[in-house]
C-alpha cells in the first residue's frame, strides 16, 4: 500500500509539475504577445489568410467549435468588406446553421448598405433567426430602412406585420393610414404594435384609433392603447383611461396610471372623482398620479387645508400624506432661506 501510494504520488508529481510550468508559460507568453499586438495594431490579413477565412466562412462545420470558427471568419470578412461579403452573408443567412445566420444578421446591420437592408427585411419575413434580433439591426438603420419596411405591413404572416408596425414607430408620419388599418387586425399582437406606433404620431387619425382600442377585449392591447392615448389623445382620452384604473388586469391598471401621468395636469378633472372610487387600487393610483404631477405638492404648500388635498390624503393613505408634508416642509424651509 505504502509503496503504491508513493509510486502514484511520484507519477502525479512528475506530471503535475511540468503541466503547471507549461500552463504558466502559456499564460505569460500568450499575454505578452497579446500586449505587443495591442501596441502594434492588428495586421490586415494577407491574401492567403483571406482565402482561408473565405473557405472557413463557406464551409459546413460538424462540431460546435467549428461553427464558432466559421462565425469568426464571417465576422472578419464582413469587417474588412471583402468583395465576397454579400455572397458569404447570403450563404450564412440561408444556410442550415442558426448561429452563423445570427452572425450574418449582425454583420448586415453593421454594413447598412441597401442590399444589406433588403436581405435583413427578407430575413425578417422568412423568420430566419429570432425576429427581434433582425428587428434590432433594422432599427439601427433608421432612416435608410424606412420605405423598405412598408411591405411588411401587408405580409400575410401576423408576426411580420407586428414587426413592420413596431419598426415603423420612429418614422414620423410614414404609413399612418396603414397603421390605423392595422388597429383592426385580427391578431392582437399586431393591434398592440400598431397602436404603440400610433402613440408616436400626431396625424389626424392617430388619436381616434388609439382611444378606440382602450376597449379592446385583449388586455395587452389595452395596455398599449392606454400608453399611446396618453401621448396622442391627451385630456380628451383622460376619462376613458381613468376607467382602466379599475381594469381586471394589473398591467392595464399600471399602464393607465402611467398614461395619466403623461397627460399631466389636464387629467386632473378626470382623476378627482376616482379619489372616492370603491376600488382601492384606483383610489391609490389617482392619489399617486396627483402626487406625481405636482398637484399634491402645490396644495400642501399653498393651500394645506383645502378639501381636495384632504380627499387625496384620504385616498392615498398616511404614507402619501407623510411624504407630501415632508416635501412641503423642505420647500418652505428653502423658501425661507431664499427670503433671508
Amino acid at each position: 500500500m505504502h509503496a503504491l501510494v508513493l509510486r502514484a504520488s511520484v507519477l502525479v508529481l512528475a506530471a503535475a509539475f511540468p503541466l503547471w510550468l507549461l500552463l504558466s508559460l502559456t499564460v505569460v507568453v500568450g499575454r505578452a504577445r497579446y500586449d505587443r499586438r495591442q501596441r502594434t495594431g492588428t495586421r490586415k490579413p494577407s491574401r492567403r489568410q483571406a482565402e482561408r477565412l473565405l473557405r472557413r466562412a463557406l464551409g459546413s462545420p460538424r462540431t460546435e467549435w467549428g461553427e464558432w470558427r466559421k462565425i469568426t471568419a464571417i465576422d472578419r470578412l464582413a469587417r474588412m468588406r471583402h468583395p465576397a461579403t454579400p455572397h458569404v452573408l447570403y450563404h450564412a443567412l440561408w444556410g442550415p446553421d442558426d448561429k452563423a445566420a445570427a452572425a450574418a444578421i449582425r454583420s448586415l446591420g453593421a454594413l447598412g448598405d441597401l442590399w444589406a437592408i433588403e436581405l435583413l427585411v427578407a430575413a425578417l419575413r422568412g423568420g430566419r433567426v429570432s425576429r427581434s434580433r433582425v428587428a434590432s439591426q433594422l432599427e439601427r438603420l433608421y432612416p435608410e430602412a424606412g420605405f423598405l419596411l412598408l411591405p411588411l405591413l401587408r405580409d400575410p404572416e401576423p408576426a411580420v406585420r407586428f414587426w413592420g408596425a413596431t419598426l415603423l414607430t420612429p418614422y414620423g408620419s410614414l404609413a399612418e393610414v396603414e397603421l390605423v388599418n392595422l388597429t383592426r387586425d385580427e391578431d392582437a399582437n399586431v393591434r398592440a404594435a400598431a397602436v404603440e406606433a400610433l402613440g408616436h404620431r400626431h396625424g389626424p387619425y392617430a388619436a381616434g384609433a388609439t382611444v378606440a382600442l382602450l376597449e379592446d377585449p385583449v388586455w395587452f392591447v389595452r395596455v398599449h392603447a392606454a400608453r399611446a392615448a396618453g401621448h396622442v389623445a391627451g385630456a380628451e382620452a383622460a376619462p376613458a383611461i381613468t376607467r382602466l384604473l379599475t381594469d381586471e388586469r394589473w398591467w392595464v391598471r399600471t399602464a393607465a396610471k402611467d398614461a395619466l401621468e403623461t397627460i399631466g395636469k389636464d387629467a386632473v378633472p378626470a382623476l378627482v372623482p376616482v379619489l372616492s372610487s370603491p376600488d382601492r387600487f384606483a383610489r391609490n393610483s389617482a392619489a399617486e398620479v396627483l402626487q406625481d404631477i405636482g398637484l399634491v405638492d402645490h396644495l400642501a404648500l399653498e393651500d394645506p387645508r383645502s378639501s381636495l388635498l384632504r380627499r387625496i390624503y384620504k385616498a392615498g393613505g398616511p404614507r402619501l400624506r407623510a411624504a407630501a408634508e415632508a416635501r412641503a416642509a423642505q420647500a418652505r424651509a428653502a423658501r425661507r432661506e431664499r427670503a433671508a
Binding site: W68, R69, I71, T72, D75, K99, A103, R106, G109, A110, S136, Q137, E139, R140
Partner: peptide
C-alpha cells in the same frame, strides 16, 4: 467567440 461576435453597440 460568441461575445466577440456580439453587437453590443446595437444592444
Amino acid at each position: 467567440r460568441e461575445s466577440a461576435a456580439e453587437d453590443y453597440e446595437t444592444l
